[in-house]
Design a binder for these strands. Structure first.
Length: 501
RNA sequence: GGCGCGUUCGUCUAGUGGUUCAGGACGCCGGCCUCUCACGUCGGUAGCACGGGUUCAAAUCCCGUACGCGCUACCA
């Protein structure tokens, strides 16, 4: 049984890279009829942020990555909060202690600092390991009596893993192949902190084993700590899970994505990008597009296809096709993918979504049918759902201004005359549809022996106030006879005044 | 500094020794479509980090260098 987990710590917002890790775990699980587990790694009290867990769950739900087991849905391997499993970690730490694989250490933070300082002064790597551990205060260097006394009098202490000398640890990473580490490079990692909570290293090994995780799929930043984990599995007598370390995702300038210095998506500092998934949700990106885009940051299906729904990703995903190299989060590409998903969306669904923005602005559409028609016309012209009103306001409100550049470019001294003639023609129309509108406009143009464009552009400007948008006849038809006539008449009066210097 | 990982167009990537003077996508430039803006479509631009090997043959294998990134916490 394939069992994978997404194991974030509730320390703030959901990172784009975190979402992708969750996605790959989800895809791998679903592709292999396995289970996707959410586990909250809340063992660091000092960084705990209230509400962060709910936020993680909310974003996962939004993206459609619903866990099979986790805080919300439970499961037979709970609890799914590490903070509720401290007894377990303690128990295994003591087992390691008894077997001589771990030891107590009583050093104060100041003493550790000093160790680090003297090491770097001598240009050595500051490490708590075989080269230094005997000069520190721990159950290896102290007498049994002293150790017992320290423990009984409640002197703060941690439990450290005793890393053996001259050993080698090799992981067969599913993405990177064989990676080997020497034990001289790994220090005696703290397993249980002085506050009684475990560190990540102990907790993730214990939980992954107890939760029967078959594959650990996580970010590359964890690769370096794999030897510690491997050794823990060994000491505990357990088989390690399969491992896959994913490439990282960076800013366009190659730096780590950071929330610092980022005010909004519309005003990103050059070379930077917002790491907060919520920002993209708020900006109105399609969830399928976000999922699609991050899926492609490090994975590809092996052919030229690049538009996928979540289900299609499930159908095609494999770890073998995950890349080794880090990727850059590119907003223009995201926008393109978003536009593709947007244009494939059904108009009725989009109309419903767009309605919230309209209501927020106090705009009402005359009917649901009308809104859907507008959406249909606007769909290929949008790359972001939230641009809808900005691009289509004239379907809901009469124009109050006329784009100065368009006036300058398209309005001539005869325009008002054409407008009024066109009004006259369409006033006679019984059927106000695009065909008859086109015919009417042709009549005006040929009567004045000018190109249709000479009439079309002023009419568009008059009816919408802007120079861009859907085809004129479709637009007019949708607007409706009365509204069009009123707007044209008004424009014929107002625009010439604007022209005067 | 040490250790680890990585390096194909600006970006995401295909490519697992010959069928590739490296293919697709975004972006950019130009054409077509056309009443505008988009969509669509056609074409163009641009890349195997560098240096050594191995081989009849290397983007593909090996070594080195450079550069980037990660880790080096009682954070995850």
């Amino acid at each position: 049984m394939i069992r994978v987990r997404f194991a974030p710590s509730p320390t703030g917002f959901v990172h784009v890279g975190g979402l992708r890790t969750a996605l790959y775990n989800y895809l791998f699980a679903k592709r292999n009829n396995g289970r996707f587990i959410l586990r909250i790694e809340d063992t660091d009290r000092s960084r705990f942020i209230e509400g962060a867990t709910n936020n993680i769950i909310k974003v996962l739900n939004w993206a459609g990555l619903i866990p099979d087991e986790g805080p919300e849905q439970g499961g037979g391997f709970g609890p799914y909060f590490q903070s509720q499993r401290t007894q377990l970690y303690r128990q295994f730490a003591e087992q390691l202690l008894r077997a001589g694989y771990a030891y107590y250490a009583f050093d104060t933070p100041e003493e550790i600092d000093k160790l680090r300082q003297t090491a770097s002064e001598r240009n050595l790597q500051p490490k708590y390991d075989s080269s230094t551990r005997m000069s520190m205060r721990n159950s290896l260097s102290l007498s049994d009596d002293q150790v017992r006394h320290n423990l009984e009098t409640g002197i703060p202490h941690v439990i450290r893993l005793l890393i053996p000398e001259n050993r080698t640890f090799t992981v067969h990473d599913l993405i990177r192949g064989q990676v080997t580490f020497h034990s001289s490079q790994v220090d005696d990692q703290v397993l249980i902190k002085s506050d009684g909570f475990p560190t990540y290293h102990l907790a993730n090994v214990v939980d992954d084993h107890l939760m029967e995780i078959s594959h650990v799929i996580r970010g590359e930043e964890w690769l370096s700590s794999v030897p510690k984990h491997l050794y823990l599995y060994e000491c505990l007598g357990w088989n390690p899970p399969e491992m896959a370390h994913l490439p990282l995702i960076f800013n366009p300038d190659g730096t780590k994505m950071s929330k610092r210095d980022i005010q909004s998506l519309s005003a990103l500092p050059t070379g930077k990008v917002d790491p907060d998934v919520q920002s993209y949700i708020n900006a109105g990106y399609e969830k399928d597009a976000i999922v699609n885009h991050i899926a492609l940051l490090g994975w590809n299906p092996g052919d030229d296809r690049e538009l996928f729904s979540l289900q299609e990703l499930v159908d095609h995903f494999s770890l073998e096709r995950v890349n080794k190299a880090a990727a850059i989060f590119d907003i223009p590409k995201l926008n393109h993918i978003n536009q593709q998903h947007l244009s494939r969306k059904s108009a009725s669904v989009l109309a419903r979504e767009v309605l919230t923005e309209l209501s927020a602005r106090g705009i009402t559409a005359q009917t649901q049918e009308y809104l859907e028609q507008v959406v249909k016309l606007m769909q290929p012209r949008l790359y972001l759902r939230n641009q809808f009103f900005e691009a289509s306001h004239y379907f809901f409100l009469d124009p109050e201004t006329y784009d100065a550049d368009v006036v300058k470019k398209r309005w001539t001294e005869n325009s008002a005359k054409y407008l009024l003639e066109f009004v006259e023609e369409i006033a006679k129309l019984e059927l106000f549809d695009k065909n008859s509108l086109e015919t009417a406009l042709q009549v005006v143009a040929s009567r004045n022996t000018v190109n249709a464009g000479q009439v079309i552009h002023p009419v568009r400007l008059a009816a919408t106030g802007v120079g861009a948008g859907p085809g004129l006849y479709e637009l007019l038809e949708l607007l409706g006879k009365e509204r069009v006539i009123n707007r044209l008449k008004k424009a014929a009066q107002v625009i010439p005044l604007l022209q005067k210097p």
